[in-house]
Amino acid sequence: MTSTSPLAIAEERIVLRDSVQGWRDAIEIVGGILVDEGNASREYVDAMIASVAGPNGTYIDLGAGIALAHARPENGVESTGLSVLHLDEPVLLADDPAHPITVFIALAAVDSSGHLDVMKNLARVLTDESLRQMLLNATTSADIVSALSPKE
């Protein structure tokens, strides 16, 4: 059962919005989920925003309209976790026209490589054209759960 897999993402970790006021708003929303779920402190959300606003901050743009928002473990991570924000109307990361983002995935990680299984599953989904489209075209949380569900 994928719903009981430790890698499966729960619906309460997913938010869908038509639009947001800007990229900061987007990271507040997706980071806020990590705070609500106990993966990170408020400081972590601020660190993710500061990272994007800083030099080369748009490096969290993975391509294809998907961004992996994250900061360092020492910025307030409590436990490993993911959350997702899906936008109908893409927002410009760091207000840069080269970086329109439709899906924000926020990652809290306790160290630099302990989240291997989480990253492997994400890499598998995001490099698969059809699963990536399922994620980008999602209209419900269930669509996103389905796209991100671990496979055998």
Binding site: G57, Y59, I60, R72, P73, S112, S113, H115, T127
Partner: peptide, 19 residues
């Protein structure tokens, strides 16, 4: 390599390993 060394770079590493 990425700025934090655990998100973008980890994703890239896994995809290079696959390649």
């Amino acid at each position: 390599v990425c700025s934090t060394g655990l998100g973008s770079s980890f994703m890239t590493r896994l995809n290079i390993e696959k390649a």
